[in-house]
Write a protein that binds this DNA or RNA. Structure first.
Lengths: 348, 348
DNA sequence: TACTATTATGAAAACCTTTTCAGAAAAGCT
DNA sequence: AGCTTTTCTGAAAAGGTTTTCATAATAGTA
């Protein structure tokens, strides 16, 4: 709650820069507000001479329609909300870039809310009141809220995540399974690795599960039995992955390669292995997923899967906009992945 | 413009999820909308028993006040706008993280607009109509618009940038001069370098100019004459910096160290030098600025200045909020920097 | 108890657009 | 020319909230 003097101040300030309204434009052009609205939105014919006067008045007063008034009458906010668990790191920025560009391109505004710090605050400020649709990342909205949104038919698009039980929102993600398969095949075929650790990401990421399937299938097709001891939870996060590998080393688990959950995790894996004096890729090969920008700078440079992150963001927005404006979207879009071979796998 | 059938669809859909209004809450609680508003905002006393009934009604109807209606009457959007030239890279994400966290913390929403792709689009969708204040990065708003905003007294905070001629907005940035001085002193004193290239960033960044002053002062205090041949425009960008260094090598400029504009630029410098077969730091020492996350992963690991990027973002929001709510802010805040010595300068 | 001072509540206006409805003017027809 | 159709425009309502003003009810005072 504001103090009295603050409120006073804000009111006083406000008067200073009160923008022109449609009524003032109308008065100046000698027409009614309705007519101004019509030339503004091209929603009905007005005689050219009148239109000209109105346009002049608009220009002279530097008039811009007040978004709140429009929202109120049109019941549209013209904004898209993005809910994500974290903003920095290596993965989210390019994603954000794609989303922002496409949102702008579609004529919407972008509202961003990261849930990391304030998940417990209870306030969920992005919803049907202030957006026309939501793009949601795993771990940023709980299932109850998703169910609620589904029930009221609110446009939602899920990113790198499948719908919770009983509801179905459209989703956009990448070809995780074939990507993982390419990686594991390469480790087995080109480098003869057979004890390959899989550091899985959070359960809620559909991505993780698909990568695991690719991992299992690749193993199976080479006649290597699946060993649960080699699958560990490592998150999509440098620190967690580092800890996980450290623990495996302490436990004396025998492995000659690590498929990290993603590139961020791979960085943690490499740190843990170096610290333990293991040679990469001599003793242990390491591969990641995503091909974030710095993957080629770390040493050894990281063999990984290039996921078109930015494009995933763009596609997500396209689908959401279609859902908002046309009422339908592709139920599932998988963008293709590509293997990027560098040195951490053992290639020269 | 939407087609008729699209509009039809949207109208139809809208009815499905029409949220409860304050009037319905009032009716259910057997009071007037005014009273509901009062319990909602604590703006006047209501007898406890009535308040109780209202709260129940609110909960039962899952009521949330409609932001647009509030904006309209209050003349506040409760949103802060962020205008920046680019979203990805290594510098912006942590900044964005700090800004987002603090914006949320202050009870505002965050609207983001990156100007990179659509500077020419003419539309500048973030302004006094849809935000209560703006945080602006260099190169994302032209001077005319800044002048306009200043004239109408709209709250604006400048980041890493000084106000254009004739107007003065509060600004937040880091201790650039002393940071640069530390770096150059170190190169001279610890590693005996004397032909130090300075790759400056964009002119509009106040940062660049202060770093140059630090560079010059450090040189002067060691009796090394300033050589304009050693100062080149390199941007805050990997590719530009890479090109600049390549060109200097072609031109046969003699140098034994490079102070890149920032860490992103330093990456480009290192790439160019490696490509030309120069040893880093043997032949040429390289130092950056910012200490972005990957600086410790590149090889050789980068000696740089740690700028509290995230904290700059937080501070910027704090100042802007103060400007919005109290009408005043610190005219200039400089956050302290710290030298981070790694290997690219020649240290072991 | 009668009167004033205080407190709690409601009615209505205001914020700024868009849109419907109806009316006026113009055009088209016989 | 008289009538119908079309085209253009304005008045008014609606959208959901907050706030001012007035009134009714309560508490306080003598």
């Amino acid at each position: 709650m504001k103090t009295f003097s603050e409120k006073l101040f804000m009111n006083e300030l406000r008067k200073k820069y009160r923008p022109a309204t449609i009524i003032e434009v109308a008065r100046r052009a000698g027409v009614s507000p309705a007519t101004v609205s019509r030339v503004l939105n091209g929603t009905a014919a007005v005689v050219p001479e009148t239109e000209q006067r109105v346009r002049e008045a608009i220009a002279e007063l530097n008039f811009t329609p007040h978004p709140a008034a429009r929202q109120l009458i049109n019941q549209r906010t013209n904004a898209i909300g993005l809910l994500l668990p974290e903003i920095s790191g290596e993965f989210f920025p390019p994603m954000l870039r794609g989303i922002e560009a496409e949102v702008r391109n579609s004529g919407y505004d972008l509202l961003i809310h990261s849930t990391q710090e304030n998940l417990n605050s209870g306030r969920r400020p992005l919803r049907e009141h202030n957006t026309d649709g939501l793009i949601v990342f795993p771990e940023s909205v709980d299932d109850a809220e998703l169910h609620r949104l589904f029930k009221i038919g609110f446009p939602v698009l899920l990113l790198h995540q499948s719908s919770p039980e009983g509801i179905s929102f459209p989703i956009v993600t990448v070809e995780n399974k074939s990507g993982a398969e390419m990686l594991i095949n390469h480790l087995i075929e080109a480098h003869g690795r057979r004890r390959i650790v899989y550091l899985q990401g959070p359960e809620s990421h559909q991505d993780s599960r698909w990568r695991e399937r690719g991992y299992r299938d690749a193993l199976e097709s080479h006649g290597i039995p699946f060993d649960p001891e080699l699958v560990e939870y490592g998150g999509f996060d440098e620190a967690e992955a580092c800890d996980a590998i450290r623990q495996m080393l302490i436990d004396g688990v025998d492995f000659d390669a690590v498929f990290a959950g993603d590139d961020d995790a791979a960085t943690g894996v490499i740190a843990a292995l170096k610290q333990a004096g293991r040679d990469i890729p001599g003793d242990v090969a390491v591969v990641g997923f995503d091909d974030v920008p710095f993957s080629r700078f770390i040493s050894p440079s990281l063999t990984t899967i290039r996921a078109p992150i930015e494009q995933v963001g763009r596609e997500a927005v396209k689908q959401l906009v279609s859902l908002i404006e046309k009422g339908h979207a592709e139920p599932e879009i998988l963008l293709p992945t590509e293997i990027i071979i560098r040195q951490s796998c053992g290639c020269p």
